[in-house]
Every structure is written in C-alpha cells, then in structure tokens.
C-alpha cells in the first residue's frame, strides 16, 4: 500500500497549550481515514498543518511525498480541502462559487456534475447568503470535491446536516473512495467514523489514544457484549451482581448495563432471576460495543456533551 500522508511526532503549541502533542500516523492511498475526537482535541489544528495552511512547531509531515510547509503549492494543487466554519463569498451564487474555485485547480471536475453530487442543483443560481447552513456546508464540501485532488480533506463535513443529508454525503464520500481517491476527514460523530472510515485515529488533548479500523478498536478493547436493561423494576437490583456470567454491572441514568463474554448464559441466568423475583423480563436490548465505548473506556469521558 502506498502511503500518501505521513505524520511523525507532530507538535503544535498555542502558548502553553499543546494543541497537537506528538502525533504520528500515516494514511494509505485509497482509504477513508478519520480523526475522531471531542471539541478542542486538536483535530482541526492537525488538519490545517497537513494541508499546509498552518505552521507546525516540530515534527515531520509529508503529503504525497512533499512537505506542505516547504512546498505548499506542490501539495495544494493535488488536494481538495473543506475547512471547518469557513465562509465563502456571500454575494456569489452557488454556481459562481464553484466555478471560481474550479479555476484554481489544474484539472477540476465539471461544475455541474459537482453541484449534482451534493444535491444543490435547484439552488445553484441563488446567492450563497440566501442559503441555509446545511446547504452552505454542502457547498463547502463541493469546493473540496471540485478540485479533483488525489486526497480530499474534509474537516467535520457533516456538521449541521440533517440525518438524510448526512447519509447522502456519506454516499458521496464512499463514491470518492470508489474513484480511487483518499479521504482524510475529522468528525466527532462516532457513528460516522464507524460506518464511513476504514481507519480511525481517536484523539484527545492532542494525543492519539487509539488507532485502527473501527472493528479492530472495538474487539481490542471489548471482548464482551453489552446487555442493556431498560426496565425500572430491575434498577439497582443487587442480585444482578451475583450472576456468574456477568463481568461488570454499570448503572446509568436510565438503564442498567451488564457486560458479558457469554451472552446466552447471561440471558438464561437473567430469566431465572426475574422468575424468582416475580418480574416479567421484557425490556432489554443487546448492543455491541462501539467507538463511543472505546473512547469512554480509554478516557473516562464521552465524546459529546
């Protein structure tokens, strides 16, 4: 596999704050690579250093074999970038905006094709200032796509989109991958990272806390399944802790979580227990651990809120 992004011991400080604290990772050609982390984790800082618009304090960065700080032009003409919270010219129309940005790249995609790709055909002749937040977000993703770059960089591409638009955009991103492009994205949506990314770097306080494919990360950290009991009758029931197949009982606000390596045994034990307690067992669900759980386990905090 060919490496297209290589980051080694990257450090970026703002005063005393280490926004990026000794990050190292690499991204292979053709993969969708995600950086998952909470607000302020250092995702955008890393992102902007890699695309060559922010200077680093130390470390090595290579994009398509080139240092983006030393030869920004050589990198920029071969990548497409969507920036978090960047506006575009307010008085231009959607179409004019894409035409303008297409003009900056040596080999851009056709404007109309890209407009269709992000579902803005009906709005293409109205001014950006009259468009909704979600439509502007899709426009800024389209700006990254129109570059026809070898790597497409997306900083929180689906923030501000409704669930349907988010799913549509995931489709477009997978299509980019099918075209052989590499996608580097950041997100703080666990689901997005899990469904979309081939590999994920989970970062917190500027450090990588876990790196790998979503499935790898989950199985590495959780051999057990979670059985979530929603029934209030079983809340804080001490006998749950006596079940032999259960390794851990976690009481959350609105549910009780049993961790178990042997789901069948636990369900049998549980139904026996409810029978002796005279309760009907009818409101529980089984959940595999997800990246959120990985983050929770590694940092003791949730990604969002």
């Amino acid at each position: 596999m060919m490496t297209v992004i290589e980051v080694k011991n990257l450090i970026k400080k703002y005063g005393n704050l280490k926004a990026v604290d000794n990050l190292s990772f690499s991204v292979s050609k053709g993969e969708i690579f995600g950086m998952l982390g909470p607000n302020g984790a250092g995702k955008s800082t890393t992102f902007e250093i890699i695309v060559g618009i922010l200077r680093r304090d130390s470390g090595d960065v290579k994009v398509l074999g080139v240092d983006p700080e030393k030869q920004p032009e050589a990198v920029k003409s071969r990548i497409g970038v969507q920036l978090q919270a960047a506006q575009t010219f307010r008085k231009l129309t959607v179409r004019e905006t894409l035409k303008l940005f297409a003009g900056f790249y040596p080999n851009p995609l056709p404007v109309d094709e890209t407009i269709a790709q992000v579902d803005l055909v009906e709005k293409m002749n109205s001014r950006v200032e009259t468009r909704s937040g979600g439509q502007r977000q899709r426009l800024s993703v389209a700006i990254a796509m129109i570059s026809n770059g070898e790597i497409i960089f997306l900083d929180e591409p689906t923030t501000g989109l409704d669930p349907q638009a988010r799913r549509d955009l995931w489709g477009s991103i997978i299509e980019l991958k099918n075209l052989g492009k590499t996608v580097f994205l950041t997100t703080h949506f666990m689901e997005e990272a899990q469904k979309l990314c081939d590999r994920v770097a989970i970062i917190d306080y500027g450090k990588i806390v876990a790196l790998g494919s979503p499935q790898e990360l989950i199985t590495a950290h959780f051999q057990e399944m979670s059985l979530e009991i929603v029934q209030p009758e079983l809340r804080n029931e001490p006998k749950l802790r006596e079940l032999t197949s259960v390794t851990e009982v976690i009481e959350l606000n609105d549910l009780t979580v049993l961790r178990t390596p042997n789901l069948t045994a636990t369900i049998q034990e549980l139904s026996a227990l409810t029978k002796t307690l005279g309760i009907k067992l009818d409101d529980f669900r089984i959940r595999q651990a997800n990246l959120e759980d990985v983050f929770l386990k590694l940092t003791g905090r949730r990604i969002k809120q």
Binding site: E48, I53, K76, S77, V81, L83, A86, T88, F104, F153
Partner: peptide, 14 residues
C-alpha cells in the same frame, strides 16, 4: 475573520 482567506489559502491560488 470569515475564514474565506484561509479557504483560499488551501487552494493552489498563489
């Protein structure tokens, strides 16, 4: 301030 500059800076525009 509106980060348009940064966005332009991420393109090959000299």
């Amino acid at each position: 301030v509106s980060r348009i500059l940064k966005l332009l800076g991420s393109t090959p525009l000299p």
